[in-house]
Every structure is written in C-alpha cells, then in structure tokens.
Design a protein around this nucleic acid. Sequence first.
DNA 1: TTTGTAGTTCAATCGCGATTAAACAAATCA
DNA 2: TGATTTGTTTAATCGCGATTGAACTACAAA
Lengths: 154, 154
Amino acid sequence: MQDNENRQKQDQLIDKFGSYFGSIGFQPIAGRIIGLLSVSDCEELSFDEITSRLQISKGSASVVLRRLVTEGRVAVVTVEGGRRHYYRLNQQNLFEVLDEFERMCDSVRDLLNTTIDLKADKQSSNARYFYQIINTIDKYKTNMAAMRQAVQTA
Amino acid sequence: MQDNENRQKQDQLIDKFGSYFGSIGFQPIAGRIIGLLSVSDCEELSFDEITSRLQISKGSASVVLRRLVTEGRVAVVTVEGGRRHYYRLNQQNLFEVLDEFERMCDSVRDLLNTTIDLKADKQSSNARYFYQIINTIDKYKTNMAAMRQAVQTA
DNA sequence: TTTGTAGTTCAATCGCGATTAAACAAATCA
DNA sequence: TGATTTGTTTAATCGCGATTGAACTACAAA
C-alpha cells in the first residue's frame, strides 16, 4: 500500500525530529510535534489530528503546544466562529540556531575570563590555553558577523 | 580571610562550569570535575583531592573520571612507584566545539533533505523554508572552512 | 436549557539517569 | 605475609522531568 508506506516513512522522520530536538533540550513530545508539522503535507493540523496521529494524551499536547506557541516555534490559527485550534510551523529567523550558539560562546568566554582572573599564575598552562580559546571565540564571532552581513545584503 | 574568600569564588566558578557542562549533556559531576581542574591553581589533582574538594563519593568520581579520560578530556598521570593517580585537564583541539556544532548542522541538513523528499508538494511553504535553511547551513560551512584555513596558516 | 465538543488543569505515576554506599580487588608498605 | 591505602564495581536509592488520566471549564449547537 503506497499510502501506508509513506506514512511509515513519515513516522520514522517524526521520531528523528523528536530525538534531534530531544538532544537540544526539548521534551520528546515537543520534538515530535515539530516533526509532524514539518513532515505533514497538510501544513495546518488541528489539536485532535496531532494527538491522534502521535498517540499522545490531550494533557501533554495542551501543555507542550502552549510552550511551543509562547516560544514562537508554532503558530495557532483559530477559524472564525469555530472553537477548533489549528497549528502550523512558525518559520523563524534562519539565524536563530546560530544566535543561540553565539550566546553559548559568550557565556563560555565569560566563564574562562573569570577563571583566569582568579588564577594565581596567569601564565600557567591552563591559563594560556584559556586565552587561546577566548581568542578563537573572538575570531569566530567576527567571522559570523561578516557572514550575516553577506547573507543580508545578498 | 583572603584564602577562604578565594576558595568560595572558586567554588562558585566550579558550579558554573558544572551547569554549563550539564547544559551540553554532561553529568553535573563531570562538569564540576572539569571546573575544578580548570580553576585550581594546582593543575594536577589526586583522586582524593577531587572527591574531598567536591564532596562526592568515590564511586561517582571513579565512573565519571573514567569516562572523561576515555573521552580525552582529562589525562591521568601515574607517578612511578606510587599508587595514586593524578588528573589534569587535557588541552584539546580548539575547534572541538565547532566540530560538534558542524556535525549537528550536517544531521539537521540530512533530516530536512529527507523531509523535503517525502513531501508531495516540493514548493510548499515549509519545503521552501527548509531549502533556505539548507542553504544557510551550506554557507555557514563554507565560511567555517575558510576561517579554519586562516587560523591554521596564521 | 440541555447536550456535546474542545481544550485545560493538576494530581499521580512512570521512567531513567545520577549518585551513593558498601563490599570488593589490587597494589604498596612494613 | 599481613595491614593499609587506593580505587573499582554494582545493587539500591534518589530526584526529577515527562506523561498520563480524569475531572473540570468554556463555549457552541440544537
């Protein structure tokens, strides 16, 4: 059955989305919902379609969807004069992931700076290693700024 | 007391290391050990110094240290004719974190490609959005390759 | 007003990794 | 050799987020 086969492939993909998003700190269900909304040929799904396709409780779906909506990853569409909610994938800023990575770099940079500050010997092996990391982070950020420029003006 | 104050600051930093490494998938204790080895003025600490300073059980320390050593994040030094093990921070490749990030980008790229493949309408709004993401990832990787070149030749 | 549908809330449970404690093994010292 | 120190192993526990189930609210249709 062609349809059935397709559906199976979709399910596999949905699980891959789930484990990817799981690995970056999302609830597994959140990842699977994003996966479903990404994979599905219909780009707007009702609350009910989501719970039945993913076989999850209404409670989970409600909580997780609210979080995804407030985070801006998913948008709700309410059809006038109906009580059903429809959900679709929100197409976010392409640099969102890079933004987050850069924030992480910043916090590492801070941490290492503070660590060096506290060291008795600023020329110790570790201190010099940390200086190198800070340097690399700075180069990375300069590079990223240039790349963003290039993409924006393109 | 100057020393005591310093020690408190170190403890705070160690916890920050702990929560940073926790956020990227390490056991909290693993992060705190890395923190201690990073912060400590003495760059080689014994098993015992680690457990007593961090107030953790020998069991935890044993398991976590083994993992850190096999992962290459920490090195063991065994002094000839003594039974104590000393541990120090391993200074890894500066691009290690970037490597990991690029691997993640690759897996996202794969996932999105497979997703588009499965779509009935390759021109759908989501499909086009995914194409854009893939494009940005490709640009990012090209850029990173150039940056590595630049750093290596410098 | 009554009946039914849509979604929310929250207490209870489940699952699982992190951590410990204590028995155990291995190496050194005396 | 026996005693002591160093670290390992593993069964048990702890803690906590994820998930469910069922009662509940709100609204809409009849």
